Measured scan of single mutants.
Amino acid sequence: QVNIAPGSLDKALNQYAAHSGFTLSVDASLTRGKQSNGLHGDYDVESGLQQLLDGSGLQVKPLGNNSWTLEP
């Protein structure tokens, strides 16, 4: 069960990665100043990332080996 409060997208993504045990490689300029609506409930990694990114204009991309990145 994930419980991440709304706020900074950077912070939300870092909390989610730490909670879910995956690696997220992101260029900080992509997420700077963006906000997230947070995340509450049970999600697989990709669904949770998509939910956190909702409205940010960013997309999640798998890199393999439980690693992910973001792209515009």
Rank of each mutant, 00 (worst) to 15 (best):
G57V: 03
A18R: 11
V45I: 14
F22M: 08
F22I: 15
N14A: 15
G7F: 00
H40S: 12
A17R: 07
L13G: 01
L39T: 03
S8K: 07
Q59A: 11
V60E: 03
L13S: 01
Y16F: 15
G38Q: 03
L24T: 03
G21D: 05
R32S: 11
P72Y: 11
G48R: 03
G57Y: 04
A18G: 06
Q59S: 11
H19I: 15
G57S: 04
D27V: 08
G7T: 10
N37R: 13
N14T: 13
G57W: 04
S47F: 09
L30A: 03
G48S: 04
Q1D: 08
T23V: 10
Q15M: 12
Q59R: 14
S67Y: 09
V45P: 07
Q59H: 12
S36A: 06
S67K: 11
A12W: 04
G7N: 08
Q59P: 01
S67A: 13
L39I: 08
N37I: 09
N37V: 09
V60Y: 10
L13Q: 01
L30K: 00
K11G: 09
Q1R: 14
G48V: 05
R32E: 13
L63R: 06
D44E: 07
V60G: 09
I4C: 07
G21P: 00
L49S: 00
A17M: 10
Q15F: 09
G33I: 01
T23C: 13
N66D: 07
S36N: 02
L58E: 01
S29V: 10
K11V: 14
G41F: 04
H19K: 11
N37S: 10
L63K: 07
S67V: 14
G48W: 06
L13K: 02
Q50E: 10
G64M: 05
N14Q: 15
H40W: 11
Q35E: 09
H40Y: 13
S29F: 10
D44P: 07
Y43L: 05
L9E: 04
T31I: 14
S29W: 12
A5H: 08
G33Q: 04
Q50P: 00
L24M: 09
N37E: 08
W68K: 00
S25T: 13
H40R: 13
G48I: 05
L53I: 13
I4L: 04
A12F: 06
V26W: 15
D10Q: 13
I4F: 03
V60R: 03
G7L: 03
D44V: 05
F22S: 01
G64C: 07
L30Q: 03
T23H: 11
S67D: 05
N3P: 03
A17G: 04
Y16M: 01
L63N: 11
Q35T: 13
H19E: 12
G33A: 05
K61R: 13
L49T: 00
Y43R: 00
